[in-house]
Design a protein around this nucleic acid. Sequence first.
DNA 1: GAGTGGTCTAGACCACTGT
DNA 2: CAGTGGTCTAGACCACTCC
Lengths: 262, 262
Amino acid sequence: MPKAYEEIADDIRRSIRERLRKPGDRLPSEAALAEHYGRSVPTVQNALRLLSEEGLIDKQHGRGNFVRRPRTLAVRDNGRHQWEKNRARAPEAIRAETGATEHDTGLRLDDLVFYAKYREFEAPDELADAFGVPVGTTLLKRTYRTRYAAETAPFNLVTSYLVRDMIAANPDLLDETKEPWPGGTQHQLYTVGIEVDRVEERFTARPPTPEEAKALDLPAGTSVIVLRKTSYDIEGRVVDVSVVTLPGDRTELLFTTSLERW
Amino acid sequence: MPKAYEEIADDIRRSIRERLRKPGDRLPSEAALAEHYGRSVPTVQNALRLLSEEGLIDKQHGRGNFVRRPRTLAVRDNGRHQWEKNRARAPEAIRAETGATEHDTGLRLDDLVFYAKYREFEAPDELADAFGVPVGTTLLKRTYRTRYAAETAPFNLVTSYLVRDMIAANPDLLDETKEPWPGGTQHQLYTVGIEVDRVEERFTARPPTPEEAKALDLPAGTSVIVLRKTSYDIEGRVVDVSVVTLPGDRTELLFTTSLERW
DNA sequence: GAGTGGTCTAGACCACTGT
DNA sequence: CAGTGGTCTAGACCACTCC
């Protein structure tokens, strides 16, 4: 026997795919749908929940169920790393123009709201491993979030780790009130004589935890992309480890790989 | 007033995070949980559904609810492109050893099951744009899926597009029965004199469509990574466009970006 | 067949939105 | 206030798993 809520979901899904219902349209009320399909309200809700999890509709308490509009993407391009490196040694006037985030989004610094917090702590197992330092080494943990000034939701959550002793030569680097730092992390490292040679990025995708859904204001039926970034200096040392959480519905990542010529 | 199903979910979530319940453990039956929390069965089910969507538990009809184990990852490394290029001109004996998929997973060809289907069709708007050819140009559409011989679920779904006239000089390239092709797409292109110069990859993450969930055997509470790959030859022409759908719970993407020295 | 989760109902009551 | 979706109940019945 076919399941009632799936039949209802299939029917509505089809109507959306065929554009009989367009982005922004309000669906009939749940009571009306229940009447139409000859089912109880909870059964209709079950069907709508499915569609919401697939990201097809947006449930709005007290207002209605709406066909979801696709969101505008922020592109995160791996060219950003070379771009940031080129600017790391430039005079402040040039560095101040734009940062890597603005490079990604095409927005200017004024459009972005930035929030940073620094904390020192002792390296646990996993991070000590990643940096190749003894467990207990003092690390600096920096958490950031950035968002468009025009929107309420941040579009990334960043946790970055540095080895304290590696950067202590410049006390400003330990001071969160200096953020946002013109030129980004690569410039910060440059001020203590570190040159970044290569960047490794690892990605996975999964549903958001409730905390992430709240912090990024993610609707039901979206995913987060989790990026673990490791930066190596020219001596092969790990100089920065970052974990970046990106909203899957607003982010596109772009990687270009150039191949050697025959 | 706190919502009953969230309280129950919070309580169970906490017990999992604190490892009071370990991966593989079975939760008490829904009836038992309902009794324990003094709530109805549907309310408990509501809570369990939440946890299932977060990927914390695995619901198994007729068996029980289990704390989910993290899955083993297949790493997809952008070094694969240079690696594949290096082998494209090698003798068949060497090419036959392993392909790019085996490079990713560390498995040998024997462990993998491969399925390919070819179809010719006329370029619609979007693809004509991507290739820079007129709408209606004949394209070859190739769909693949690969899976571990030991598992039932494929770990990727691939659709690859080529311009027919660009490869027609080698009739074998139009024949799906020749798959899997030792050496991969870059070798196929080499047989008609095309050298790949760079590869662009764009990806986003989202919940699976019902079709994808079925094809990849995705449990509730997982995401898919959608990767659009564009290959350019040394003359700047687009020679291949591929769309790859990867299960978010089994895939890690690794990109390394090397920076120029100061 | 016993035990488990899955679906569904009919209706009560609550919470949010907009007039 | 009317209209909407959200939560919850108590219980019936179905479907799957395993012994």
